[in-house]
Each structure stands twice: as C-alpha cells, then as structure tokens.
C-alpha cells in the first residue's frame, strides 16, 4: 500500500458551463483525519463523489488507496467506507437488520457477520435498541450506527459527508471521539463539514471556495498564515472572495 491514501492532481468536474470542481490538487496521508471545508455549493460533495466513484471526473487524475478512479473503481469500492449526510439507514428495519444487510453487501457472511454484528451493537451501545426500528432511534444514535456501519468492512479510508449535520454540540463532540478511535485503528478519515469548530479537530484541513482549494494546511499553520485566532476567521477571510452564493 502506498503512503498516500488519496492523491489528486488538477481534478476537475464540469456540469455543462458550470465548473463545480476546478483543478484541485491535494494529498491525504495514510491514517490522517483530513477536513474538507467549504460553504454550501463550494464543490465539496462533487469532489467527494468523484473520489468515491459516484461521478466520473471531467479531467485530471485521482488515486484512492493507490488505485486509479477511472480504471480501478471496483477495487476502490472494496477499500472505502462512505457515510452520507442522510445517514442512509433503513428506518423500517432494526439496527441489527441494518448491520446484517450492509455487512452482507460488503461480503461478510455467516459466523463472521454474526460476530461483527454483536461487536458493533456492543461498541455503539445499542443493546436496548436492537429490536426497535431505526425510525424510533434518536438522531445521535442513528448517526453513530451509520458511522459504525460505514466501517464494518475495515476499509482503508472512510468518507464522511457532513456527518454531524443537525446534531447537538454534545453529540457532535461524542461523534468526534469515535472518529479519533477509528483513526487510531489506522483508518484514514476524509470528512466534509461546515462547522468550523470541527475543523480544529482535524490533522489537516483544506478550504474550498468556488470549486478551488484556496488553502490547505494543519489548523495551527492556517491560523498563523492568515493571522487569525480561529479557523472560522480564516474561513471568513477566504469566503469573502466567493462569487457563488449559497446553494
């Protein structure tokens, strides 16, 4: 396995006249927590979709886990986990059934799947909810469950698309503790967010404005370069130049 978990060069995606992602170049190191910041409509989700194989790039190159997004999409799929902002659990199934289903999708079966399911339910603390429908679970639990499911197959990289949207600060804090645990296991975490306080938890962050990456470094370095006291200030300085509105 290569040292770099993700490697892109001049990665671009256009939709007609609109350039959603404009020649972005960046690397993510193995085991890193990489924050992908940007206002709504800056191109975060499009960039992430190209890396996860949901969208083909218009130009440029990208490698995920050392595999080419154009040619080795199938190999990439086996080696990544993905959690979307909608949590993507089946709310008419129980947590147990969700785990078994997604585990099965990733090729776990029989004894291994049973064992993994038990392990996951215990680690998330879902024992009392195991026979209840996901629909009736509090948001924070759904989020924890969705995150655990996204790494059920021990991927090299996990992509989190605004995983903490709509959750209270305490739950968000707990969620980030989970992210650290996962990172300690050696899984690379690629996370998009628009909560600036969360950016401080990342090893490195990149800030996207109008489809470009305008800044990329560790949070401390960024604050020093922009002479700001928080990432939020850095972000506001950069975002002022944005031409695209919210959307």
């Amino acid at each position: 396995m290569s040292e770099l978990a993700i490697q892109t060069e001049q990665l671009t995606r256009t939709f007609g006249d609109f350039t959603a992602v404009d020649r972005i170049t960046f690397d993510v190191k193995q085991g890193e927590i990489f924050g992908f910041l940007g206002a709504n409509g800056a191109g975060k989700t499009t960039a992430m979709k190209m890396l996860t194989g949901l969208l083909t790039p218009s130009s440029g190159t990208a490698k995920v886990s050392g595999m080419d997004v154009y040619k080795e999409a199938e190999g990439i799929k086996r080696n990544i986990g993905y959690m979307s902002q909608k949590f993507s659990l089946y709310d008419d199934l129980t947590p147990e059934e969700n785990i078994e289903f997604y585990g099965g999708v990733y090729g776990l079966r029989g004894q291994e799947l049973k064992q993994k399911t038990e392990e996951l339910i215990r680690s998330v603390g879902l024992e009392k909810f195991r026979k209840k429908l996901v629909r009736s679970l509090p948001l924070g639990w759904k989020q924890k469950l969705a995150f655990s499911i996204s790494i059920i197959h021990n991927p090299g990289i996990v992509f989190l698309d605004e995983p903490t949207g709509g959750v209270d600060p305490v739950t968000r804090r707990q969620f980030w503790e989970r992210i650290y645990e996962v990172s300690n296991q050696g899984i690379t975490v690629f996370v998009t967010t628009h909560y600036m306080d969360e950016a401080e938890y990342c090893d490195r962050v990149s800030i996207m404005v109008d489809g470009r990456i305008d800044a990329m470094d560790s949070p401390d370095e960024l604050k020093r370069t922009f002479n700001a006291s928080s990432i939020e200030e850095v972000f506001i300085q950069l975002a002022r130049s944005a031409e695209r509105g919210e959307g």
């Binding site: 194989g53 949901l54 979307s84 909608k86 999708v105």
Partner: peptide, 13 residues
C-alpha cells in the same frame, strides 16, 4: 430519497 442508494452505489455491489 433516503440516501440508501448512494451507499449501495459506493459499495462493491
């Protein structure tokens, strides 16, 4: 609508 499809499309299925 629920976003499950995205996960399935990202999976090896």
């Amino acid at each position: 609508e629920m976003g499950n499809m995205e996960i399935l499309l990202v999976s090896p299925l």
